[in-house]
Design a protein around this nucleic acid. Structure first.
Lengths: 180, 180
DNA sequence: TGTACATCAGTGAACGCGCGTTCACTGATGTAC
DNA sequence: TGTACATCAGTGAACGCGCGTTCACTGATGTAC
């Protein structure tokens, strides 16, 4: 490894994801990150200023990935809901940061943009149904977000963890999106 | 204040709730707690051993309060769902700990019992409908849990915060419980 | 092609801080007789 | 009623640790001429 890392910023974000998935975002330390990447402990400061700066980068990354995933799943609302849960389970590090805005700078321009675009992707399936009420949008978001957070926190009954989370999401979200 | 506090254990749990609502459960420190209560920094160790012990007490407390709240909301499922959201918003300190089991000892007997009883209260409204599928139960839980966590994290659009959270919960949960 | 210089990325030593943990202790309370 | 003793609750000093922050520095890269 040369004196100049080449892409230290990207490497630090990746290491942050690992660290968050191990210990949660609150336990994250810049010194630990530097250790993981094999770099001086002052290097992360150079790139992000402080922990909030780093987590802002993680959140931006996450909202972009989420938008991509939801857009790719579309246009059917149930598929979008399943994709939301799949994203949360598959990118828990990102997800845990994204929905804890007190950890990062939620007024960062790049973040505001990425979050807004992800929000549009989520509403995409609903918009196709005409002009949906705000309540419909919130209900759809709530049910998939709730299932995702309950899953990630390990709070569900053991039986839930024996199935594929996407299958579970399809069953659960189906109760809302296509009631019997 | 005498040498013997009288009810230090209770006072410490109450201070913990305050601290958690200010800084989140991960930032909690036993020394800060001792300072808040006006007691030696070694005193909390005497009662709880360590941070996980303290947070276990907070979680037990929370599940008992939740069970009470859900039971009091009475047999209608929609009322129970609204009570769930009301509890989360009104006891955010407890709520944030309860659903982060990695922070406490989730195999503690008192905790296991309290959590199970709260779970039964949540299912109470469903059981009245006969023998509900697991999917129904998870859907109901997910939609109110999702709304609660989104609300608490400040992730909802600004318009949502201009209304009473209970009203919002009634509208949102109504989409699932009594579809048009 | 070669040299000089500016810029940028990363270093490493030093600092002060708050934390958890340990431990010998002391003050208060309750119980036995 | 009084005394002795055990138990329990809380103290306060000491320790080592990892953290964030600062700062003068050095190695690499790119550009001007």
């Amino acid at each position: 490894m040369a004196y100049h890392h080449g892409d230290l910023r990207t490497a630090l974000v990746a290491a942050a994801i690992d660290a968050i998935e191990e210990n949660g975002p609150a336990m994250l330390s810049l010194r630990d990150l530097a250790r993981r990447v094999g770099v001086s402990h002052a290097a992360p400061v150079h790139h992000f200023g402080d922990k909030a700066g780093l987590l802002t980068a993680v959140a931006v990354d996450g909202f972009r990935l989420l938008e991509e995933a939801l857009r790719a799943a579309g246009p059917d609302l149930l598929d979008v809901g399943v994709a939301y849960v799949r994203f949360a389970v598959g990118h828990r590090g990102h997800f845990e940061v994204m929905f804890r805005p007190e950890l990062y700078r939620s007024d960062d321009p790049a973040l505001v943009l990425a979050r807004a675009k992800a929000g549009e992707s989520l509403s995409g399936g609903l918009a196709a149904l005409g002009a949906p009420a705000e309540g419909d949008r919130l209900a759809a978001w709530s049910i998939v977000h709730g299932l995702a957070t309950l899953w990630l926190s390990g709070s569900l009954p053991a039986s839930a963890y024996r199935q594929d989370p996407c299958e579970l999401a399809r069953v659960v979200a189906g109760r809302l999106f296509s009631p019997p």
